[in-house]
Simulated scan of single mutants.
Amino acid sequence: MRCAPLSRFLTRLLAATAVTWAAGATCAHAGMGLAVLPGLQGDGPVTVFYPTPEADQPVRRSPFTVLVAPQAAPVQGNGRLVVLSHGSGGGPWVHTDLARALVDAGFMVALPEHRGDNARDAAEAGPVSWKRRPEEVSRAIDAVAAAPQFAPLLSLDRVGVVGQSAGGHTALSLAGGEWSPKRFLAHCEAHLAEDFNACVGTFTLLTGGWLDGLKKAVALGVLRQRFDDAEPVRAHDPRIAVAVAGVPAAADFDLESLRKPRIPLGLVTAGRDIWLTPGWHGEAVAAACTPCTRIAHLPEAGHSVMLSPAPPADVLGRTDRHLLADPEGFDRAVLPALDQRIVAFLAQHLQPLAAPR
Rank of each mutant, 00 (worst) to 15 (best):
I342W: 04
H281V: 10
H281F: 10
I342S: 07
H236G: 06
P309Q: 04
A249F: 13
T207H: 01
Q340C: 09
A286V: 07
R259N: 09
A230K: 02
A333W: 04
A325L: 03
L220Q: 11
W275D: 14
G208P: 02
P312Y: 04
V233D: 05
A249R: 03
A284M: 11
R332D: 07
T319C: 08
G246Y: 00
A217W: 13
L255Y: 06
I263A: 02
D339G: 04
V244A: 03
T290M: 14
E283C: 05
I342Y: 00
D326F: 05
A230L: 09
L211E: 15
T269M: 13
L211M: 14
V315Y: 02
L255I: 00
P299I: 04
A249G: 13
R341G: 03
E231Y: 00
L220V: 12
G302N: 06
R332G: 04
A344I: 10
L223Y: 08
A296M: 13
L346A: 11
A251E: 05
A287D: 13
L316D: 05
A296Q: 15
D331L: 11
G209C: 04
R226N: 14
H297P: 10
V244T: 04
I342E: 14
D273F: 02
L323M: 11
T207G: 10
H281Y: 08
L211N: 11
P248E: 03
G279H: 09
L220H: 03
L258H: 11
L335Y: 02
T207M: 05
I342D: 07
L324G: 05
L265P: 08
L316V: 10
R332I: 03
S304G: 15
L205H: 00
S257M: 07
C292Q: 13
A217P: 01
V242K: 00
D229Y: 01
V244Y: 03
P299V: 04
A251V: 01
P264Y: 00
T293Y: 03
K216T: 11
D320W: 08
K215Y: 08
L307H: 12
L206W: 02
L335W: 01
L324E: 06
A301S: 07
S308W: 05
A251P: 00
E283F: 09
D339R: 06
A245Y: 03
H303I: 06
L338Q: 14
